[in-house]
Amino acid sequence: MSTDKHIVLNDVHKSFGPKSVLNGVNLEIGRRESVVVIGGSGTGKSVMLKCILGLLHPDSGSIKIGGTEVSGLRGRKLDEVLATMGMLFQGAALFDSLKVWENVAFGLIQGKKMDRAKARDIAFDKLAQVGLKADVGELSPAELSGGMQKRVGLARAIATDPEIIFFDEPTTGLDPIMGDVINDLIVHCVKATGATAVSITHDMASARKIADRIAMIYRGEIIWQGTAAEIDNSGNEYVDQFIHGRADGPIQMDILKA
């Protein structure tokens, strides 16, 4: 594991109105490391990710990327930071007004002002990397299956050769086999580009496959972290309950009990 810290979250707080979602998140992610944050629905995973990306501004605390404070950045400065990142969204979030290849090339053409023809070549290259044939590039995203959309989303995320790639529930909504295909692609793409990877998921099979290190978030705090191998002997009853998917345990779902 590298000692070079790429992303450092220090005591990050975020609340929406009276509802506090992040209660002091502390997390350090090394360069070229793949960290998976696990946790149930509504525990603050997505909010944490959006804070790192600058889509949400934390109420307090610091988020450093490569040593630079990014929380509170706006406008062009935020764009500069974002240009070093890629993200695969849960629902792929492809632009349905554009063709598949234009989606993949979007960050190159709009973000990096690359020539269209050159960006198109790179887009088809990236599509091939995620196992899609060239003719898919001319289709519109609505014509693709969920698994294919995820692959296009992955191609778009890696198109600009980002230093950090975020994965928001990469396998959610896919069948187990397609989920595993996506996991393999993620591992492969992260290795190939040498990027730092941050994923959030509640799919343990996916977490075990793509993580160097796993951190568990519960009620807006990181309650445990360790290597992927350590998770089965974490000695943490919250983690044990989560990875075995038991309804009984210290984690109580916010549902009305009879």
């Binding site: 764009d79 890629g86 629902g91 979030a93 960050g107 973000g111």
Partner: peptide, 16 residues
């Protein structure tokens, strides 16, 4: 575009 996160995706692709 907002509810399918396409607007967030625009931001992450460094496009306002």
């Amino acid at each position: 575009m907002r509810v399918t996160e396409q607007i967030d995706a625009l931001v992450t692709l460094a496009t306002n």
